[in-house]
Nucleic acid binder design. Structure first.
Length: 103
DNA sequence: CTTCTGACGTTGG
DNA sequence: GCCAACGCCAGAA
């Protein structure tokens, strides 16, 4: 590894999010040096290899809402994982005011 | 090549 | 709070 790819950069940023906190796609994109390509984050997370240690579930929308339809399987997994870290998920959304990650 | 879609964001009504 | 419009850009059809 000489130079981290965009995907790896993203994963690195996501991995840097402390437990019990959440970051928005736009925030991750900005920190990864992608500017306003917030959409790319979702695609990069979709490319996650198996056996990864990336807390993808700590990434949500800027409005605090989870990026999956409520009731879907992925949604349940994410909400569950967040709750286990102490993050309160209400009606598919998280209070960014409280749990938003600010370095 | 064109067109659509999408784990998004911001602004404005 | 809700919805619409626009911006942004990478893959897939």
């Amino acid at each position: 590894m000489t130079e981290p790819t965009k995907d790896q950069k993203i994963w690195q940023v996501v991995a840097a999010i402390p437990a019990g906190r959440v970051a928005s796609y736009g925030q991750v994109a900005d920190m990864a040096g992608l500017g306003r390509q917030a959409r790319y984050i979702g695609r990069a997370l979709g490319k996650l290899p198996e056996g990864h240690s990336i807390p993808w579930y700590r990434v949500i929308r800027s409005n605090g809402q989870i990026a999956f339809p409520i009731g879907s399987e992925a949604f349940e997994v994410q909400a569950q994982s967040l709750r286990e870290e102490g993050v309160v998920v209400v009606d598919g959304r998280v209070s960014m005011r409280e749990f938003g990650w600010r370095p």
